[in-house]
Amino acid sequence: MAEPRDLQRKMQRTVLACVGIVAGMGGLAYASVPLYDLFCKVTGFAGTPIVREGNAANVMDRTISVRFDANVSPGLRWTFQPETPEVKVKLGETTTVLYKVTNTDTKPSTAIATYNVQPDLAGTYFSKLECFCFTEQTLQPGETVESAVVFYIDPRLVKDGDVKDLSSITLSYTYFPSKGGQPVAEAAAPATKPIVQ
């Protein structure tokens, strides 16, 4: 009689362990996106620039070119461009570049800009002090707004064997339609039309 009871307890433990594993995996999957985003912002991984409060870096004589790329997702009728396509900056030097965005649509629209740095490994050294990214903006028809990005390239770049000889970095922004402070991928995708036969 003791064997069926032991077998029943073992099966209950196995079921509980499996339920616990599935629940844990579900929790990790749910938390993975915000955790990955936080990891990228803290480490500069995947070309994510580091956000800093101030610039305590020493300015070096070494210069590097910073290129600016501006994009607008399909479905958003905005024009978007930097004041200059490229600047040469000294490592550690605080630099401000303006971008101009215009709503060319006949109705108000809301969008949000995301960014990255290329090459990816340079993200750790691209330090933003001020940026318009991840801030939802609503523009009226024909309205134009200028926004600034203030940044510096951390001089520690010269000590990193993977990027010490880097001569240029590209900062790329893309505006997406947004709702509630989040990019809306569905709004950017073209509507599918039914096939008529």
Rank of each mutant, 00 (worst) to 15 (best):
A2N: 12
A2T: 07
A2G: 14
P4T: 04
R5Q: 13
R5S: 13
R13L: 15
V15K: 10
I21Q: 12
A23F: 00
G26T: 10
L28F: 07
C40Y: 06
V42R: 14
V42M: 12
T43M: 05
G44D: 01
T48A: 02
I50K: 05
E53I: 07
N55H: 02
M60T: 15
V66C: 00
V66W: 11
R67N: 12
D69S: 09
D69I: 10
A70G: 08
V72H: 02
P74T: 15
W78D: 00
F80M: 08
E83S: 05
E86H: 07
V89K: 02
V89L: 01
L91P: 03
L98H: 14
L98E: 14
Y99M: 01
Y99A: 03
K100H: 13
N103S: 06
P108I: 02
P108Q: 06
A111H: 02
I112L: 02
A113P: 07
N116I: 06
D120A: 08
A122C: 00
G123C: 08
G123L: 02
T124A: 08
T135P: 10
T135A: 13
L139P: 09
P141M: 09
G142W: 07
G142P: 04
G142Q: 04
E146P: 12
S147P: 08
V150P: 06
D154M: 08
P155S: 06
L157D: 07
K159N: 14
L166S: 03
F176K: 01
V184H: 10
P190C: 15
I195H: 11
V196L: 09
V196D: 09
